[in-house]
């Protein structure tokens, strides 16, 4: 059980990293992080981007759930 959850967790983690990297970066780096910088994020997101968002949110929920489950399993199993 623990092993299966851990494997699911690793897979979703890797998927999560990949999906986030596939997004278009909208940060703009440090320069407009602190002080200054006009928000240049005009123009709506495309269909691809929207589907990517949905996929990322879905993966994120599974990822989050498996973290909680694995944490609880290890806690009940491990000798504190």
């Amino acid at each position: 059980m623990i092993l299966a959850t851990a494997i699911v967790l690793i897979v979703t983690s890797l998927l999560m990293i990949l999906l986030v990297l596939m997004h278009k970066g909208k940060g703009g780096g440090l320069s407009d992080m602190f002080g200054g910088g006009i928000s240049s994020s005009l123009g709506g997101s495309s269909v691809v981007e929207r589907n990517l968002d949905r996929l990322t949110i879905g993966t994120g929920i599974i990822w989050f759930a498996s973290i909680v489950v694995l944490g609880l399993l290890l806690k009940s199993n491990g000798v504190g």
């Binding site: 967790l9 690793i10 979703t12 983690s13 890797l14 999560m16 990293i17 986030v20 990297l21 997004h23 970066g25 909208k26 940060g27 703009g28 928000s39 994020s41 990322t56 994120g60 990822w63 973290i67």
Partner: peptide, 18 residues
Amino acid sequence: VVMTAGTSVIMWLGELVT
């Protein structure tokens, strides 16, 4: 792996807010 994925999620959250 979980912590690395966590960092990428943070990056995404930040970009979503921007």
